[in-house]
Design a binder for these strands. Sequence first.
DNA 1: ACTTCGAGCGAACGATCGTTAGGGAGCGGG
DNA 2: CCCGCTCCCTAACGATCGTTCGCTCGAAGT
Lengths: 210, 210
Amino acid sequence: MEKVEPLAAGAPSVRVDQVLETATRLFTERGYDAASIRDLAAALAMRPSSLYHHFPGKQHILFAICFGLQSDFNAAVMPLFHQGKGPVETIQDVLGEHIRFSLARRGEVLVNTRERRSLPPELRAQVNRLRRAYRDALVAVIEQGRRQGLFSVEDPKLAAMAVFDMVNGMFQWFQARDQADVERVAKTYVDAAVALLRGWGRRYTLTNAR
Amino acid sequence: MEKVEPLAAGAPSVRVDQVLETATRLFTERGYDAASIRDLAAALAMRPSSLYHHFPGKQHILFAICFGLQSDFNAAVMPLFHQGKGPVETIQDVLGEHIRFSLARRGEVLVNTRERRSLPPELRAQVNRLRRAYRDALVAVIEQGRRQGLFSVEDPKLAAMAVFDMVNGMFQWFQARDQADVERVAKTYVDAAVALLRGWGRRYTLTNAR
DNA sequence: ACTTCGAGCGAACGATCGTTAGGGAGCGGG
DNA sequence: CCCGCTCCCTAACGATCGTTCGCTCGAAGT
C-alpha cells in the first residue's frame, strides 16, 4: 500500500490548497499587510495556530502563492518560445497564452504583482528569477524580429517592458465573464502588441484593408 | 504687517511639506502599511504624538500625498486638451506632459498608484474622481481621432487604458538620471502610443523613412 | 505685563499583530 | 494494546500598531 499522502516535495495536500485559495482571496481583497492570520483562519473555520502546521509563517503563505503561480506560468508559456516559429507568430503564441493563463488565475496574478514586494529579499528573488527568465526570452524574440526587419523598435528591452506593462496593467481592471471574453481580449491585446512592435518609430502609409 | 502664515485653506506650511516629503519617501520604500507613524516621526526627528498637530491621522497623510499630486497633475495636463489642436498633436502634448510631470514627481506618483487602495472609500473616491476626469478626456480625444480616421482602434476606452497602463507601468521601474533622460523616454513613449493607436487592428504597408 | 496659541513632548491607552507552547482527539501500523 | 503521527485546539506571549491625554515652552498679540 502506498501512503495516503506522500508529502514528498511540493505535494498538493487538499488542506494546503484550501489555505492558499482563501489566502489568495483575502490578499487580493485587503492586501497582504491588512489581511491578518486571524482573518485567514476565521475564513477557513480554524484557529490561527493551526495554520502553523501547514506553513512556517505568514510570509511563506505569500511565497507559496507567488512562486507557485510563477512556476506554473513559466511551465505553460516558456515552451512556446522554442517551437521553431517566426518572431511574429511566437510573440502571438506567447502573449496569447500569457493572457489566457493570467486571466484563468487572476487572483494569484494580482497577489503576485501587488504583494510580492512584501516578501523577504531571498524569497522575492526566487520569484523574480522566474519572471526574469520569461522577460529575457521575450526580449530575445523581439531582438530577433528586429534583426529580420519585422519590428522597428530601437530598444528591445524597452519594448518588452512596454508590452509587459500594458498586459499586466490590464489584469488589474479587467475581469472576464466567460471564455469568449478571454479569447476576445487576448486577440485584441496580441494585435495591439504586434501593432506596437511594428509601428514604433516608423513612418508608414496606411491601407484600410478589410 | 501680514501674518507670517495665513494657514487659510490648503496653505503649505513648511513643516507640513516636510512631513509629506518624508512620508512619501517612507511609503515608497516600505509601503503604507509597513511604514509606521513612529518611523515617520523618527525620520523627522520628532515624537509620534507631534504629528497629530499637523494631521488628524495616518490615513490623512496618505490622502494629502495622493490628492495633492493628482490635483497638480490635472492642473498641469487637463488644459492641454483644449488648445484647438488635432487629435494626434493633442495626444502627443498630453502624454508628453503626463510623462514629464510624473517623472518629476515620481515618489508621489508611486505612492498614489501603489498605496491609494489603503485609503478609506470616501477619500479614495475623491482622488479617483480626478483620475477619471483625465481618463475620460483621453478617451474623448481618441474617439475624435477614430472618427477622423487617424486612429484605427475599435474601443477607445480600451485603447486609453492600454496606453495608460503602458505609461504608468513604466514609472514603476524607470528612473530618470537627468532631464535629457526624461525627454528621451517621453518622446519614445509618445511615439509608442501613437504607433499603437494608428496601427491597432489595421493592415498596413511599411516604408522605412529616415 | 498678561494672554493666546501653535508646536512639541513624555507617557500611556487599548487593540491587534505574528507566533509559540503544550495538550488532546483520531487513527493506522507494529 | 499502545505507539507515533497528523491535525487541531486553548491560551498566552511579547511586540508593535495608531492614537490620545495632559503638560511645557517660547513667540506673537494687545
